[in-house]
Amino acid sequence: MAKKEYAFYPGCSSQTKASSSNYLVSVNSMCKTLDIKLTQIPDWNCCGASIGYAEGGELPRHVLNARNFALAEQHLSGQDVVATCAACWLGARETKERLGASAQLLADTNEALKEAGLSYKGEAEIRHMVEVLIEDLGYEELAKPVVKPLAGLKIAGYVGCQTNRPFGIAGESFENPKYLDKLIETVGAEAVPYDQKVTCCGGALAFSEPEKSQKQIRDIVESAYDHGADMIVTPCPLCQANVEIYQGEVNKRFGTKFNIPVAYYSQLLTVAYGGSAKDAALDGQVIRPTKLEELASKK
């Protein structure tokens, strides 16, 4: 039996050949080493994300999230719901909090859920994978399986917004959260201090307002370079995508020459735990993380 079991909410971007499919592959490898069993919530749906409010309003968004909770309660009773995507976690937690605070909203939600043959009781807790790692296992436990310390690798831990605000990780400050730096150090790499750790990448507005968002991305990447980072690491799929894939566009717009790899914490842990580049899905990076690849291929 696995050490820990969770009802898993992977989210749309994690699906095969979607924009954070490499995140899911590396999470699976990391969890295998840590003996964490993730069982996907059957037939889970989208959380509505941060941009769903325009057309989705209030209740329809909460109903989307409540459907996932109801399915988790029905099929994976007693297990915490764990999300890997920052927006999924945030959207789901927000719904859980709102429904917990308003009997009216809860009744309305259940009236709508009935149309899909479901009901929500309010049992399941909603957690982020990072919370599971830090709170349920702890840094010491996470350091034990390290067989290949990532010595010499300088990393800018980019926390961004949605795993940090408004809920955040318990005990962390909003302005300078340390958990990602600690994870980086746990696997033997160096966490470089830099001043754009919690700067917004533009989020969904990277699509609708590219000019404004790319200035954000420029500031983040520039600061990482200025402080000597070899690569950027993040817990959020949208941060990862925005900060990585638009570097070419940022270069065109601002005349910069950025080309810095952006990976997930789970890819770092996977490599440090002895996983191959394939286990860590490093082939999913648009900008090659060469130093991490070299470490992964080292015997």
């Binding site: 309003g57 209030e58 209740l59 329809p60 909460h62 109903v63 989307l64 459907r67 309305d108 939600t109 009236e111 709508a112 859920l113 009935k114 149309e115 899909a116 479901l118």
Partner: peptide
Amino acid sequence: HAMLKKAREIE
């Protein structure tokens, strides 16, 4: 689709 239609109606 049915649950979202209902949610929109209520809202």
